[in-house]
Amino acid sequence: MPSNRLAKRIIACLDVDGGRVVKGIQFQQLRDAGDPAVLASAHASAGADEIVLLDITATSDGRKTLTETVRRTASELFVPFTVGGGIRTLEDAARIFEAGADKVSINSAAVANPALVSEIAGRFGSQAVIVAIDARRNDGPTEKAEIYVAGGRTAPGKYVLAWAREMEDRGAGELLLTSMDRDGTGSGFDCELTADVATAVSIPVIASGGAGNVQHFVDVFSTGKADAALAASIFHFSTHAVAELKQTLLSHGTPVRWPC
């Protein structure tokens, strides 16, 4: 057995609004392709190593359904399960954990109140806290890349590298790094940005934003030094997408969980 076979993780992300998956109606055989619980299990069966449920609901009414959605989704899911979106307090996080999530992902709330990261880590352990960082560098060097909140609309004036280190110091267990420059373009992950952040911290970095084809994953795990990669739409082409992706990664020497 090779000395280090820690697998590079493929994480499937479900965007949920008011309890329904809003992007990517993909598995044609499913009786309800908009049900997060059904879809999460389908992704896990298809080989996804983890599931992230991102609540993009803007209204508080819709937000209330989140706990129930998390509970239903977690009930038949036996891979790691992360929930993000609208978690602003320790109580919010506690409710999500109680409903069955293994990790919470926080973004804007960490910027508004960095101590929240330490609070959640102190109560539930660092392994339960992912800090999501939305980064934009406009072709500049990573040293000048800034973080964004509120869906990319607001720049609170913090550099990505310093913020990543601060979040690690405050107890984040992993970082979910999204390139705002690449997100939605399908032109590939920002490998330079990802590698710079992954080198700056000792906690795992999940790359996000820009996945368009299998080669992009090969690149982000090699030159990008990512520990995991997250994608939504790339998995929506077929039920075999994850398996095909993993076989390609294996053929490039990238360790992945296989068979899965």
Partner: peptide
């Protein structure tokens, strides 16, 4: 020399 925490899927012998 290794990233810590050890997070993810690894093999058992």
């Amino acid at each position: 020399e290794v990233k810590c925490p050890h997070v993810g899927w690894n093999q058992i012998e």
